[in-house]
Design a protein around this nucleic acid. Structure first.
Lengths: 255, 255
DNA sequence: TATACACCTTTACGTTACGTTAAGGTCAAC
DNA sequence: GTTGACCTTAACGTAACGTAAAGGTGTATA
């Protein structure tokens, strides 16, 4: 069946305006245009729209969606499998929120206590390093207990002031890393300052710091795609690698 | 602990700009302002922000959030319980999407077939009436099998053209209902046309229509809060009641 | 004591993904 | 042959911020 704008919109549960907008930005072009100028969509467009909506559901910007699915290397099946993984992650996130709201209910009923930091924990999609209660076992098995002995207890045992300081340090690491990357020199002052800030940041959650473990974590940043994705996304592609290099130099552990 | 803008932002995992914006629109005002003009937030504001983020997570507009939590009748505990219910619904929605992506994967692997309407089914947050595969048992127990014998099979057995026609009718019901409500007369021409369109729409999924069942469904629209919420939200408050009245007159079943 | 430097402020314009008229052409149906 | 539901482009409006710009604040350090 060939769909007009409104028919396609109804099929997908979106507005006609959205369909036209997607044409305007070149995200979804009609299969053909009738003599009267009517947009007409076919099977390929229906499937493409479904892909688009999966990406949109997962919060991807339209510009990025366009880049992704227009790439000649775009693999529909692989994309669907990634959607699946992302949706599973999203469900875990919703589960966290449910746990959080339940704990907050208990708090309001006077049945428990909650620190300020706990109240917002589930809203943040955190870096894996701060999520070890969920990934801990996995990471532990891979990299040993040494580097992963911090956990949820951290949130409960830190005072609000300590937590604020910790968060601030985390932000500074990112800011300094960004500036350092602009220089392009992992051995430069800024990059070494980044590594030092990173050490200070770690010290909050590690009960004993040593250079070997620090360097080990740095290597993990490039080895584990979830870490890499986090830094590359927050800063720019290559950020995880750059940080790793800087830390290896800082700890004198580069071979 | 008293938080500055940036500290509160870090605590909640949002940007300082967002905090200031919430002040600007009167959604979250600081507990006090220092001599130098610095915003300072206390415990009550932290808790209010948590509530705000729960609503935001569920897609509620900031303007509406403000109305809700600023109302003198606002019950924090009741709101939290509603968040819980909505989050559970959201998880069901994500589950639907996961099922959909898995079926689509199977489709691309040539292991199954899928109609166009099935491809987008999970993206729509539908009215309960179209969701009977999930609520069916419940509604069935409450209102009998008579009115609820349509199901998922409908999507698979309708041709794309039939489905398009059905969707169109559904839209027309809403449009006509909107216009009819402006007249305020459930017995008027427009309202009766709405009831007739509603009958046609039903006929697509009911294998045998009769006035009694139609009137019964109309009564359910005001009895079941999920139906009421759907129509009241799509049109305006009172829409479900108005539609019910019109249908009762149309079917001659009003007492 | 000066000077970094990270913070704070307001003002104001930019952005994304559409919603919403407005003004006019198209097409199947009664 | 005229509704009435559709289609078109154009253009302005909106929500929820992001992003400088220009200037004041607070404190740690050289």
């Amino acid at each position: 069946m060939a769909y007009t704008v409104r028919q396609l919109a109804r099929l997908a549960g979106i507005s006609p305006r959205t369909i036209r907008y997607y044409d305007e930005i070149g995200l979804l072009k009609p299969a053909q245009v009738s003599a009267a100028g009517y947009r007409l969509y076919g099977q390929a467009e229906v499937d493409r729209l479904q892909q688009i909506l999966f990406y949109r559901e997962l919060g991807v910007e339209l510009k990025k969606i366009k880049r992704l699915i227009s790439a000649p290397s775009f693999d529909e099946l692989a994309a669907l499998r990634e959607h699946r993984a992302k949706l599973l992650a999203k469900r875990r996130q919703v589960d966290l929120l449910i746990a959080n709201v339940e704990k907050t209910i208990a708090l309001k009923e006077g049945k428990t206590t909650m620190t300020d930091q706990e109240k917002f924990e589930a809203f943040k999609q955190k870096m894996i390093a701060e999520n070890e209660d969920k990934y801990g076992a996995e990471v532990r098995a891979k990299y040993g207990d040494e580097a992963v002995d911090r956990s949820n207890a951290l949130l409960k045992n830190m005072t609000a002031e300590q937590y604020a300081e910790w968060q601030k340090l985390g932000e500074e690491v990112l800011n300094t890393l960004k500036a350092a990357m602009a220089t392009g020199e992992p051995a430069g002052d800024l990059a070494q300052k980044t590594a030092d800030l990173h050490r200070q940041w770690l010290t909050f959650s590690w009960n004993h710091y040593n250079k070997e473990a620090h360097a080990g974590l740095a290597r993990m940043y490039v080895a584990d795609s979830r870490f890499t994705a986090y830094y590359d996304d927050q800063i720019q592609p290559g950020a995880a690698q750059f940080l790793c290099d800087a830390i290896l130099i800082y700890t004198g552990q580069q071979q």
